[in-house]
Design a protein around this nucleic acid. Structure first.
Lengths: 241, 241
DNA sequence: GCTGCGCATTGACATAGATCAATGCCGCCT
DNA sequence: AGGCGGCATTGATCTATGTCAATGCGCAGC
């Protein structure tokens, strides 16, 4: 599970081929023409991040923007007393760098091994200003992220622990399906329980208990690094908006 | 309190003057030049909504987009069993119509009396495609909304009832200040307690108790249709991210 | 093959906030 | 002026989830 071709992961740090990039179809660069992709490729820097390494931290000046090509990035905010809210997981094809001001207003670090294309923010902004259809793509991506965030608000504000976990698994499955192009019943979970808890507004104990209860019902099957959905229909009924 | 000049609220339903519009400075139309505003004005329809009247409902086809010129709109999603999550309040100057697909994925109705400029979505999209700086403005607005949604996720997932209420009041104050151009200690609350509860992921009783407790501490003073912040510093300390 | 460490699970108990049920308040309609 | 309907407040109790404290498990390093 989670075994992508990873065409982009050459050892080379510049001179990537965006045209060959396997995440491009679902990514923000999808809109670009062949020659525009060549421009993009010349600006791209390949970057690799070991688990737990930060792509950037809340408060850092925004110097780069990223397209994730493999692995999972966790995005989170911290309160001063250490409470953490994970605001999302970036999957291959996702774009990081919508931060408005000069500084990031959240942190991002690698949940597992992550590869990304990095662009200088100035280059990227210039390209977006020059190519309205790239800007349009960014706008659509932002609107999509906003819709996801709104769904998450419903989940955080109005759903029970069990519903939270079920919605989480179903939505993640859907995102993996979109990436891998097939709707498998296996859901990779490269993030740990604490990450899931902080994403769902629960404690690690509640998440753990909910997983075991779902496994006891035969709704899911816990496998290494993930979960197998044994009763997606029942889950979909519970998750129904 | 909440007594704006409302220059835009002529009785006329077309032929508005966008140039004279008092919300323009903080709005998405801020970027447009004088002649572009004239085009915009020719496309605008003035619309008025009595309290509780829907601007649109979740599932409706997106035919119009709106700029709010006065009043407060509540935006919310419903689960099938009736649970509601308010995902935001649109204030004067705010833009409604970022919905991605053909259908709205949330509902919007008037919390008090609302005036808005309505545009056909097709016209607006065409204008955005023709004017990259309008598109840019929309992009920035979407990114801003996304940042707000992320803050709300932290609030919903990781904050106590008291913190939720305090953050809510402080953020609302800030938004009013941005609109009215002065940071008053009076915060108008045109929405009712149930709306606030559904926004903060609480019950109406908890919100009510929290307000009375804050009033007992002399942190706030309840006034008709709003609240007066008696100890903004203490509140800011509690809300500190 | 052991050991230690980081995560996950499980259990016992505590509590913030939900639920249920009055009661109060105020503006609007007649 | 009086009564009614929609909100808001308040109190008593319940419960889902948090907290605290072991215990379990797998894997990396020796």
């Amino acid at each position: 599970m989670n075994c992508h071709p990873e065409v982009c992961r050459s050892g080379i740090t510049t001179a990537n081929s965006c045209e060959a990039c396997w995440v491009r179809r679902g990514s923000v660069c999808a809109a670009l023409s062949s020659d525009e992709l060549a421009v993009l490729a010349s600006l791209a820097q390949k970057a690799e991040f070991a688990p737990k390494k930060a792509l950037f931290l809340q408060g850092d000046r925004v110097v780069s923007v990223f397209n994730i090509t493999s692995g999972v990035v966790r995005l989170y905010k911290l309160l001063t007393d250490g409470r953490r809210q994970v605001i999302g997981f970036a999957l291959p094809g996702d774009f990081l760098g919508l931060a408005r001001g000069d500084a990031y207003d959240f942190s991002a670090d690698a949940a597992d091994h992550v590869s990304a294309c990095a662009f200088s923010r100035a280059d990227y902004t210039a390209l977006a200003d020059a190519k309205p259809h790239l800007l349009r793509q960014l706008y659509d991506f932002a609107a999509h992220e906003l819709a996801l965030a709104q769904d998450q608000m419903v989940l955080l504000g109005r759903r029970s622990a069990e519903e939270k976990v079920i919605c989480f698994l179903l939505r993640l499955q859907e995102r993996w399906a979109r990436i891998e192009g097939n709707a498998s019943v296996m859901v990779p979970l490269p993030m740990n329980r604490q990450d899931i808890a902080d994403f769902l507004g629960l404690t690690i104990e509640t998440v753990s208990r909910t997983f075991t209860r779902l496994a006891r019902d035969k709704t899911i099957l816990n496998v290494s690094q993930g979960v197998r959905l044994m009763n997606p229909d029942r889950m979909a009924r519970i998750a129904a908006t």
